[in-house]
């Protein structure tokens, strides 16, 4: 129990600090950064539930991030329901989709699992591109998201959206943290380390895998909702393969074995992106060299590297 209270306290502290920062540092770039960070960190951490904790390497997790942006933006544009209702409905849509997709995917193993999830994502991408009447096709959903007011707070205002994103991020991370610390989380790690033994010990492997698949999809869609609010719409790029790549790079660079690894990785990637694109148009060259230095120098994510240096053993991890 103590751990939960400690985590919640840290979360509240983080929100308080974030809420204060804009009053100290003027300029809105920091707020934009935090909003994007919140979206991508939720997405990357949700992917790490699969990769780091269960040993399921998905290449197509962007399906749920993108579906989150589209379902939320469409619900806001096409129906009259309020933002919180659209939020909940989006989570439901993603959960249902994840049950169907997961039921097919978790039958497959290792690299085949990775590629079938990617195929699922690209299939959804093809559908969104083709269904022009509903989604606007490759142009994306245009015209912005209306009625961004929750309980009198207008999320169209940047500072409000910033606070909203920070709160959603902290709550999302707290819940995921709780999930991996329960006995369910222990089952995940047992499956990762030795599926046959886990099964022998009475864990119904497929049920656990499907559950974590659905849970991670739901959290990915929360990241999608934040992104949808940030860009005020939804675009096919948000469900295309590179978005899955971004999440994978974030968790690999931040550390698959540490709960906050994906969040740290997201921050590294976004910072690199923002700083490097300002300096040079040879963004790929610069980023590529930095990634190589990272991958070959540390050979593991940053947080995992630090944990090991401090003599600890990362809690999660894949080998």
């Amino acid at each position: 129990m103590g751990r939960i209270f400690r985590d919640i306290a840290i979360g509240i502290l983080a929100i308080a600090v974030l809420a204060a920062v804009p009053h100290l540092i003027p300029g809105k770039a920091f707020q934009d950064f935090v909003i994007r960070c919140s979206s991508m960190a939720l997405f990357a951490t949700s992917l790490n539930l699969l990769v780091g904790y269960t040993g399921l390497s998905s290449f197509g997790h962007g399906l749920f991030f993108g579906l989150g942006t589209y379902s939320f933006a469409l619900l806001m544009q096409r129906t009259g329901i309020s933002l919180p209702m659209a939020f909940i409905a989006t989570l439901l849509i993603n959960a249902v989709t994840a049950v169907a997709v997961g039921a097919i995917c978790i039958r497959l193993r290792l690299i085949y699992f990775a590629f079938v999830t990617l195929a699922m994502q690209m299939l959804m991408h093809s559908i969104i591109i083709s269904w022009v009447g509903l989604t606007g096709g490759d142009q994306g959903l245009q015209g912005g998201i209306p009625r961004r007011v929750v309980a009198g707070i207008d999320l169209g205002n940047q500072y409000n959206l910033y606070i909203f994103a920070a709160v959603v991020l902290v709550i999302g991370l707290l819940i995921m943290r709780h999930i991996v610390n329960t006995s369910f989380g222990t089952s995940l790690r047992m499956i990762r380390d030795n599926e046959a033994r886990a099964s022998f010990l009475g864990i119904v492997v497929w049920r656990v895998k499907l559950t974590v698949f659905v849970l991670s999809a739901v959290f990915a869609s929360v990241g999608g909702i934040v992104m949808s609010l940030f860009v005020s719409g939804a675009y096919p790029e948000l469900i295309n393969w590179p978005i899955s790549g971004d999440a994978i790079f974030a968790i690999v660079m931040g550390g698959v074995g540490s709960f906050l690894g994906p969040t740290v990785g997201t921050m590294i990637l976004l910072l690199l992106n923002d700083v490097v694109t300002r300096q040079t148009e040879y963004y790929g060259l610069a980023l590529g060299i930095i990634i190589l230095a990272f991958a070959l120098g540390l050979r593991r994510g940053l947080l995992d590297f630090i944990t090991e240096r401090l003599g600890g053993r990362p809690a999660g991890g894949i080998s």
Binding site: G140, V231, Y235, E237, L238, T277, E281, Y283
Partner: peptide, 8 residues
């Protein structure tokens, strides 16, 4: 600035 062809 480079937007890398990505709307977001």
């Amino acid at each position: 600035r480079d937007s890398k062809s990505q709307p977001q």
